[in-house]
Every structure is written in C-alpha cells, then in structure tokens.
Design a protein around this nucleic acid. Structure first.
Lengths: 235, 235
DNA sequence: CCCTGTTTCAAACGGGCGTTTCAATCAACT
DNA sequence: AGTTGATTGAAACGCCCGTTTGAAACAGGG
C-alpha cells in the first residue's frame, strides 16, 4: 500500500480542525456569494474546504441542498452578528430611526465583517430561489415591522399602514441602492466624495434627515442655511 | 478561421426581421436576461433564434462577445423606446421632477414593453461586466445629470453638488428597490395594496411627494406634527 | 485479533457545455 | 453553365460539470 496520503493541507486550510461539514458550508457560502449558484463549482468548493469532492454528496446529498444549507447558515450567523439595537424605553423615535438606518447600512456595507454573507443573501433577494421565502419571514419581515413601528410613532399614528409601508420602502430603497448597485454609484460620484460622504455613518445621517424632513419633523434639506451643512446627528 | 462577420457590409436593404444576426441578438438578449450569462446556453439561444449553433461563432466569435453585443443592442433599443420627456421652456421644476420619476419607473417597471431588456441591463448594474462602463456613460450618467439639474433648480441653487447627488441617489434608490427586489417587496406588502398603491403612477406620486417634502417645497407627509420638536436628532 | 459501521479517497461516469470542423448550400456575377 | 465567396448544417471535439463508485482508512466494541 504505497498510496500517497496527499491530504491537501493539515495546517494551511482556514480551520482544518472543525468538522468537514462546517468547512464545506463556509467554503460553499463564499463561493456561492462570489460567483452565484450556477457558476460556482463543487470542485472549487471542496478544494477550498480541503475535502474530497465526494464529501459534498456524502454530507448534503447534492449541490442544490448544499446551497440552501449554506444560505441558511450565513443567514443565522448574520442575525447573531449584527442584532438590532435594544432601545431602552423612552428612546425618541427619531433616534431609533437613525439607529435603525445606521444598523441596516452597517449590516449591508460595513467592513467590520466578512462581506460574503450579505452578498449571498443579496443574491437571494435579487433572484429568489427556494431559500428566499424563509429568509424573508425570519429575517427581513421582522426588521421591516420594526421600521414601520418607528415611522408610525414618528408620524403620531396619523398615517395609514399602507402609507407607512411605502415610506419604509423608500428608506430601505436608499440603503439598498448602495449595496446592490454600489459599483454604478461609484462611477457616478467622484471618488473623493465617495470616500467622505458615502460612508455608512454619513449615509445614515442623510437618509434619516431626508425621512424626517419629508415627514415635516426636521429642517428641510433646502433652505437658506443648508448650503453649508446641516448639522448631523449630534453626539 | 477567426473571421467574424461583425456587421453586414453589403449596402443592400437590411432585412431586419430575417437577418440571422439580429435574430441571434434578440434571442440572446432574452436568454441572458432570463438566466444570466453563465446559465444561458448558446444552444438554447440558437434554438430560439432558429439558427445553427455555429452561427453564433460565425457572427460574433464567441459567447462573451455575443453577450456584450446583446447588452449594447438592448440598451440602444431601450433608449429609443422610452426617451426622456422634452420639456418646453418654463416647465416648473417640480413638474419635471415628477415626469422624471414617472419616466424612470415606467422604464423600469412598465408593462408596455418587453421586460427582458431592462432585466438584462439590471444584471449589468447588479454585477458589472465589461459592458457596464459603457452602459453607465451612455445611458445612466446623462439621466443622472438631468435629475441633478432638476434638483438644483428646485433647491434654488443653494445646495452643494455633492448634496444634490446624494438626494438624486435617494430618489433613484426608491425606484430601484421595486425593480431589483420586487419579489421581496411583494412578500412584504399585502397583494391588494400592491396592486393599488405600488403601481408606477402611484409610486411616482409618492417618490415625488417624498422628495418635495424633504426639500421643504411641499406639504409634509405627516403634517399634523410640524410644530413638534425632534428630540435626539436635530439641535 | 476480527467484525462493523462510518468517513475519506482516487478514479471514473454520463452528460452538457462552448467551440470547431468541413462538406453542403446559396447568391451573384462572368 | 461554371466559378467564387459568403453562409448554413450536422456532427464531432475536448473540456469540465455534478454525481457515483468501490475500496481503503479509520474508529470502537466484542
């Protein structure tokens, strides 16, 4: 038995000590996020995970089920990573709106965490598959409800639920654009401006200010004083 | 041979509907829009176009060049199909803003034209390839400049260019969400509400009203509370 | 030790892909 | 008609895909 035990790397892999199943899930999430379901190959996934090609079939059955599992895995990790703020009672609705927007932008654009998880979920949002409905129910709808509640309070409970939803979607859309079409935004905006005015904190201020002004609760974006700068969120 | 019949050189009358090159471009645009570059197959494209598989190589060289040509083709067709309104001098800026938003929504969501052209361009925006930069320069940037000019006039030329760009992106983001994440929006909003309040005309009204209110030029969306202060945000 | 069930491995299978081949066909002109 | 060059067609090529195989390596209890 002169078979060469060419187990790829015992030390060079990301985390060789973990279960092969977890390593496959990690590598699959990254590959699917980067290239999409069709273009990602199980061979590349297994190479990155340091396992044999047969392992994906052994642990997950086939490529489709591996994909669904990796989406759910990334989703659950993300929920634990960036939870919504836990506002103490009495926190003003306007402050909660700003926190909510900042949280959403940080989750979508923040560099503090590996980007592939959000990229993977974005793919589901943009081109839904079987994993999408679960994602919406567990992850997106609760967040949406929180935003609607904040807006309801901000508007003094004078607006219809349908109108609140439209305003909520307007706010989400502004954040969504930067995540989904960030490359095009980068082409439309000078690069120096991009680095200074289109960062998550700056955008959170802008989106919040825009919403409050539209609701008649803040200073309008355009009046005689705004040409310089409207003070953002005071520390 | 690597010779490509890139364009029919003979000056004879173009048989528009029967030219194999055009039939391939049409079918390719639909297939690429539906399934994406990787998942679309040359065989399906040729089947739909009613030509032999060798034709795509004969006319375009390879799949990649066919893709780029089909994106440009769809783009040019779209520009001719839905041009920007030609406002007579003196048209109020607010009216032009509403027209602009309605035009953009109609172009993105309208049912009056085959949807695959916009779907194809959306793919480029969401996951740029070689064809993207050309698309931005020829198609998106001029529209963006028109929107910025409208906003500049609306704000009485008091806002910095950078601020105008941010507001413009806010407006575009709201429209973009419905196009790119329409499926998720459909899950978050009751279906009856979707059919009545989230149509292109209704959305155009909403987005315009939202922007005008934020600029302090229209009635706030929640106008019963305009006198209330906003603790925690504005000084 | 052997037996038993689980996990890993190299190799291969069948199929679909983009691409190429080359002979057949067509259109136009001499 | 014959010639020529541009198109079309059926078939095949080589490659890589997801998946399967069957045996080797491992682990634990008798």
């Amino acid at each position: 038995m002169a078979t060469i035990r060419s187990h790829p790397e015992h030390a060079a892999g990301p985390k060789t000590a973990e279960d092969p199943r977890d390593r496959i899930l990690l590598a699959a999430g990254q590959e699917f996020a980067e290239h999409g379901y069709e273009a990602a190959t199980v061979r590349d996934i297994c190479l990155a995970a340091g396992v044999n090609v047969a392992a994906v079939n052994y642990y997950f059955g086939d490529k489709r089920r591996l994909y669904i599992e990796s989406v759910k895995h990334a989703h659950e990790a993300r929920v634990k990573q960036v939870p919504l703020p836990d506002w103490p009672p009495g926190t003003p609705a306007a402050a909660r709106l700003h926190d909510f927007v900042a949280n959403m932008l940080e989750r979508m654009l923040g560099f503090s965490q590996p980007p592939w998880q959000v990229r993977l979920m974005m793919r589901e949002v943009l081109h839904p598959t079987d994993a999408c409905r679960e994602l919406v129910e567990d992850y997106i709808r609760p967040h949406f409800a929180v935003l609607v509640a904040i807006l309801d309070e901000l508007a003094g409970r004078t607006l219809a639920e349908s109108e609140l939803r439209r305003i909520a979607l307007s706010i989400i859309g502004q954040c969504f654009l930067y995540r989904a079409a960030g490359d095009v935004v980068g082409m439309l905006v000078p690069s120096d401006e991009l680095a200074t005015l289109h960062t998550p904190p700056q955008l959170a201020d802008h989106v919040t200010r825009y919403a409050l002004a539209a609701l008649g609760l803040g200073r309008p974006l355009a009046d005689s004083l705004t040409s310089r700068s409207v003070p953002g969120i005071a520390p």
